[in-house]
Amino acid sequence: MKKLFYVLALSLSTINPALSNPPSTFSEAKVIAKQKIYLDQANSTEGDLYCGCKWTWIGKSGGRIDADSCGLQARKQDTRAERTEWEHIVPAWTFGHQRQCWQSGGREHCVSNDPVFKAMEANLFNLYPAVGEVNGDRSNFNYGVATQVEPQYGQCKTKVDFDQRAAEPRDEVKGLVARTTFYMFDRYNLNMSRQQQQLLMAWDKQFPVTSWEKERNKRITAIMGHPNPFVTKERSWTQGYKPLGDGVVIGVTAKSAQSPKTTTASRSESAGRIIGNSKSHVYHLPEGCPSYDKVSSKNQVTFESESAAKSAGYRKAGNCK
Rank of each mutant, 00 (worst) to 15 (best):
Q206V: 01
R216T: 05
W237D: 05
R235Y: 04
E234N: 09
T232I: 07
F207I: 09
E234L: 08
E215S: 12
K233Y: 13
M224G: 00
N217R: 01
E234A: 09
M224C: 01
S256N: 12
G240H: 03
F207M: 11
K255S: 14
I223V: 15
Q258T: 14
A254T: 08
G251I: 02
S211Y: 01
I220T: 10
I223R: 02
I223A: 07
K218L: 10
S256T: 10
E215T: 13
K242M: 02
S259T: 04
K214F: 01
P243L: 03
P243T: 01
E213S: 09
S259R: 06
W212E: 07
T238P: 00
A254K: 12
G251D: 03
S256V: 10
K233E: 15
A222D: 07
S211V: 10
V209Y: 10
F230R: 04
G240I: 00
F207S: 11
N217V: 10
W237E: 06
N228R: 06
L244Q: 11
S256P: 00
F230K: 07
G251T: 03
K205E: 14
A257T: 06
V249H: 06
D246Q: 08
K242H: 06
K261A: 12
T210P: 11
T232P: 02
N228Q: 11
T232H: 03
H226D: 06
I220M: 10
G245I: 03
T232Y: 06
Y241L: 00
A222T: 09
G240Q: 04
K233Q: 15
V231W: 03
T253I: 13
A257G: 04
V249P: 05
Q239M: 12
Q239A: 09
K242P: 00
K242C: 00
W212C: 04
I223N: 05
P260K: 12
G225T: 08
L244T: 06
S259H: 10
P243G: 01
P260T: 02
T221Y: 05
K214I: 03
Q258A: 14
S236K: 14
V248F: 08
K233L: 12
T232L: 00
S256M: 13
P243R: 02
P208N: 11
P243I: 04
